[in-house]
Design a protein around this nucleic acid. Structure first.
Lengths: 124, 124
DNA sequence: TTAATTGTATTATATTAATAATACGATTAA
DNA sequence: TTAATCGTATTATTAATATAATACAATTAA
């Protein structure tokens, strides 16, 4: 797995940073279905975290369907693009809802947002 | 000001609910530049909150440039659309950036997002 | 001038979330 | 079978945040 570090100064909790990093590895295809992840203890030592913090990340990743854990054995990537698609869409919709809510509270309407998105895309 | 209630069961803190409600009043035009807001104590009594909770909402609204507070006197809406526009746009852009970042980390591209937005708009 | 009303500051309490310490129990491999 | 290696469960500690209790200080209006 690509090496990464925990930003201890960040407001984002360590376990979420671990989740995000592993999700990215999976989504980008650098981690594939069936690949083994480092053990909780190994990753904890590597990142200088308590094993429980890594366990929390793994636990949540499992709940979200990204990996699978087996006692005494280890952790594996479980990524089936077809199955995953509905999950990813649900996650995206949640994020979009949050964003739209904030936008509306700022006084923007849907048309404004579409225009901004257009301009944003063209600028990048 | 349009009446509103605090949802005590919500995970959103009371002071943020107050902020959101007042921002909406301002953004929608129901509260205009120069309009007086209820006093901290009055609004606290009305919403069954501690005065400090309302004070926190007002303090933040002032920091964000939406209102102005004066000791012994009261609180007034300070909304100059022309000036405010750049601030609102900056806030919206920040939110949009956050959203896009998450979307990309979920493996979506800009086209996916545009389509989802379209569908989202039509469904509501 | 004075009493009422206003926002502000300080401190305390309660709640939640993140992290850690420790022990437990299942699996693997020698 | 047994020792090492796993993930899991339980409980404690720490830190941050929201809210509240109380006191303070500026302004207003009689």
């Amino acid at each position: 797995m690509t090496r990464f570090d925990i930003d201890t100064k960040s407001a984002v909790p360590a376990y979420q940073q671990v989740m995000q990093a592993i999700k990215l590895e999976i989504m980008s295809g650098r981690l594939k279905n069936g690949d083994q992840l480092p053990s909780i203890r190994d990753l904890a030592k590597l990142l200088k975290l308590n094993p429980n913090t890594v366990a929390k990340a793994y636990y949540n990743l499992e709940a979200e369907g990204f990996i699978e854990s087996r006692i005494g054995s280890g952790n594996w990537v479980k990524f089936q693009p077809a199955k995953q698609d509905t999950l990813r869409r649900a996650m995206l919709e949640t994020e979009l809802k949050n964003f739209l809510e904030k936008a509306v509270s700022l006084g923007f309407n849907i048309e404004d947002i579409k225009q901004l998105l257009e301009r944003f895309i063209n600028d990048e």
